[in-house]
Every structure is written in structure tokens, then in C-alpha cells.
């Protein structure tokens, strides 16, 4: 606002930029730490992360290339390695879509509706997180192995689950079960029902509403859930190890192949296969970090309404 001089009153407040008193010694806000404290804490945190997280990661790649690129590539010339990669891809290709369908359905029921026992249901969905992967494998063995609960039944029908692909897939589904639902539920709860209700008032059918309103709202969280689920599915070791029976070339996934190579002292080959999975983990984390920036903005836009 332009400041007119008053005809009958003293004009106040000329813009003053003059008379800057001598700068006091550097002071800090009461909610800040002294710079040296800050630097010390950052140094400690970075040092800890470097020692405990980065160093093991770097080790994977260092060991993989210890004897040069030729030795690294030779690891993949082994047909067993190729079979392991293919089997891992196959298991993930079944387990991830299964958990995707489940995650979306569970998130829809839990985030959009109020029903009794909801908290308990969420706890049950989280259960596989706190169950040892070995126990996860064991429960399937107890169910489906030849002397398991359904073992006799399956054997007479000629169906092999344990020490075969179905067992690997089921164990993998078990351990990666909560990932997609866990990503979706909090976000969908936060977004509320208003968008879906608006779509319905505009005459959209249930499926149309889901495709055009719900899914676009949660697509980034969904993508991240799928990536994480996939990384874990491809990397699962304990549960798969229990149900696989280690039949080389038939029920050997990449992590199991790594174990075999390692135990046979083929360290370079073991780390070469491991480096593929580590690269997959890094890509997953990179995309997550990037998505967090993206869909943080999406969420903020959602709040602006």
C-alpha cells in the first residue's frame, strides 16, 4: 500500500533500512543446537550408516568383481545360475500379482469401511512380518509334505507342493503378504471417501469409480508396494530354503543358488549373483526415494481441497 502523508496526522513508519547496529556474535535460535553439536551428530549418524549399511553393500560389489569382469560374467555362464534366475522370476511373477490383488481388496475393505474387528484384521495382516521366515516355510511343510496334514491326500492325487514350485510360491506369498496392503491402507484412509462419493453422485459404476478415481489417487503408493513386494519375493531365503529341498536346477532360486555357491567356496560366483539382487534392491530404493518426492506432492494437493 502506498503511504500517503496524512494531512492532519504525523506520517509514521518511513521504511527504515538504516542504522544497522554492529552485528552481535552469532546467536542461535532456542530450538537449535550449536553448530559443533550439529556437526558431531551428523558425523556420528553418517559414520554409523556408513559402517553398518554402506560397507556391507559395497562389499557385495567389491567381492563380485574381485577377480575382474570375466570371472563375474562366468558366474552367469553356469546353466544352474540361469535356471535360478528364471525360477526366481517365475516365482515373483506369480506371487506379486497374487499379493497385488489381495492388497488392493484388503485396503479397499479396511480403509473405506468401518466394521467390527478391523483392528484385529489389520494385526492379522501384519502377522507374517513378525513370523520367522523359517517358521513360514515350516508351516507349509507341516501342511503339504508327504507326512503332513494334507500330504496323504496330495500324494494320492499325484500333486507335489513341497520341494516344488507351488511350495516356493506359497512360501514367498506368505512372507511378502502384507507389503502392498501396508502401503495402501494408511494412504487410502487419509484420502477419505469424498472422491469416490463424488464419482458415484456423478453416476459412475463401482468399477469405473475404482479405475478412474481410487486407482489414480494411490498409484504411486501401489507402485512402491509392488516394487518392495517384488524385491522381497525375489530375495526371500529362509522360507524358500525350508520348502525347496535344494533340488539344483529345479527348485533353486537365486538366493538359494547363492548359498550353494558360497558353501562350495565359489565366492566370486556367489557375490556375482548376489550383486544382481543387490542392484535390484538399490533400484527399488532409488525409485522409492524418487516416488516419495512425487507423491508427497500428490498428497499435499489432495489436502488442498
Amino acid at each position: 500500500m502506498s503511504d500517503g502523508s496524512a494531512a492532519f496526522a504525523v506520517s509514521t513508519g518511513e521504511p527504515i533500512a538504516k542504522a544497522v547496529t554492529a552485528r552481535p556474535p552469532a546467536r542461535r535460535l532456542p530450538t537449535e543446537e550449536a553448530p559443533w553439536v550439529r556437526r558431531l551428530l551428523i558425523g556420528l549418524a553418517v559414520g554409523f550408516l556408513g559402517l553398518f549399511l554402506l560397507l556391507p553393500l559395497v562389499t557385495v560389489f567389491m567381492e563380485a568383481f574381485r577377480k575382474g569382469a570375466g570371472a563375474f560374467l562366468a558366474a552367469f555362464a553356469d546353466p544352474a545360475a540361469v535356471d535360478a534366475v528364471l525360477l526366481t522370476l517365475l516365482v515373483a511373477a506369480i506371487a506379486v500379482p497374487a499379493n497385488l490383488v489381495f492388497g488392493v481388496a484388503a485396503a479397499w475393505a479396511i480403509a473405506k469401511f468401518d466394521f467390527r474387528g478391523k483392528a484385529f484384521l489389520v494385526t492379522l495382516i501384519d502377522l507374517p512380518f513378525s513370523v520367522s521366515p523359517v517358521v513360514a516355510g515350516l508351516v507349509y511343510v507341516l501342511l503339504y509334505a508327504s507326512h503332513g496334514l494334507f500330504g496323504g491326500l496330495l500324494q494320492s492325487a499325484g500333486i507335489q507342493i513341497i520341494f516344488a514350485l507351488p511350495g516356493l510360491v506359497m512360501a514367498t506369498i506368505f512372507v511378502t503378504f502384507p507389503f502392498i496392503a501396508r502401503e495402501l491402507i494408511p494412504l487410502m484412509e487419509e484420502l477419505g471417501n469424498a472422491d469416490e462419493e463424488a464419482a458415484l453422485t456423478l453416476g459412475a459404476s463401482g468399477f469405473r469409480m475404482f479405475w478412474t478415481v481410487t486407482l489414480p489417487n494411490v498409484k504411486w503408493a501401489l507402485l512402491y508396494g509392488v516394487l518392495l513386494c517384488n524385491a522381497r519375493a525375489m530375495g526371500e531365503f529362509g522360507a524358500v530354503s525350508v520348502v525347496s529341498g535344494h533340488i539344483r536346477g529345479y527348485t533353486n532360486t537365486m538366493p538359494l543358488h547363492i548359498e550353494i555357491l558360497y558353501n562350495e567356496y565359489q565366492f566370486v560366483a556367489a557375490f556375482a549373483v548376489a550383486s544382481l539382487l543387490a542392484a535390484l534392491a538399490l533400484v527399488t530404493l532409488g525409485i522409492k526415494s524418487w516416488l516419495e518426492h512425487r507423491y508427497a506432492g500428490d498428497l499435499a494437493a489432495g489436502h488442498r481441497h
Binding site: 500500500m1 496524512a6 496526522a9 509514521t12 513508519g13
Partner: peptide, 16 residues
């Protein structure tokens, strides 16, 4: 812009 009692502020605003 102005400092004054509530009366002064309301009855005799010093600035636009």
C-alpha cells in the same frame, strides 16, 4: 502504523 488507546485508534486513525 499507529499506537494509541482504543478510542484514539478508532476515532482518530492516523493513516489510511
Amino acid at each position: 502504523e499507529q499506537v494509541g488507546s482504543p478510542e484514539e485508534i478508532y476515532d482518530r486513525p492516523a493513516t489510511p
